[in-house]
Amino acid sequence: MNQLEISGFLGAASFLAGFLGALSGLGGGVVIVPLLVLAFGVDIHYAMGASLVSVIATSSGAAAAYVREGISNIRIGMFLEIATTIGAIVGALLASSSPTRLLAVVFGIVLLYSAGMSVRRRKPAATDGPPDRIARMLRLDGAMPVDGDWIPYRTRRVPLGFGLMFGAGTLSGLLGIGSGAVKVLAMDEAMQIPFKVSTTTSNFMIGVTAAASAGIFLSRGYIQPGLAMPVTLGVLAGSILGARFLTRAKVKTIRIIFAIVIASLGVEMIYNAFSGRLS
């Protein structure tokens, strides 16, 4: 294929990924790497580079909207970014010494996990109970708008959340993804923050986390502008359009369909790693 054809096909496919990612709330970034590797035969390191750049674009774009609505907790985000950015550097350094097969298997597992997370039932967060000592020291408790009122919430198990966030950052740098599914897990399950807050705060953090590994990706030559250009512009345009349709679409159905797509990509990544098609 020549560069014009590659740009056209990749741009269109990335647009679709961004559109479905925004509609389903799962983010398009997680499907970019398998899409490039499996459908276009792109080397996994280049695919990770292009994916990481698109993740920064969609995260910053979406975070702009959330910050203005005042749902994300900037203190929680900033504190946990210490863990995610250090993790991201560790992950990016590990990526260059990891063989393609290993990266593909880890990626497959993360895809399966993300698919499972996206269809799970969410339980409401606790709003009462004793305050957490560390959360109080760091002033992580907050309030969120519900029907025009400000409802306070508490943050718990800060060290566990911090540790999980380090893991989320490492995966982000290792695979060139936002790893929003792990971030939301750390905040929802471990720290018990209301999911509206955890989802938006996670989105807020993804860009900063990705920027930490982007410097290393760039200097190692993972970011090929010829690939990153159509992917980033496609995903960004798709996600902006997807966010506009969000209020009118049947989100649940789309979520399930997209989860199935993600899961099958995960199986295919693992299968290809073991069958030796990726090396």
């Binding site: 750049v53 920064i56 674009a57 910053s60 860009g207 900063v208 990705a210 920027a211 982007a214 990153a228």
Partner: peptide, 9 residues
């Protein structure tokens, strides 16, 4: 892309 990386920074 550098400008994009600089945005969250």
């Amino acid at each position: 892309i550098l400008l994009l990386i600089a945005t969250p920074v």
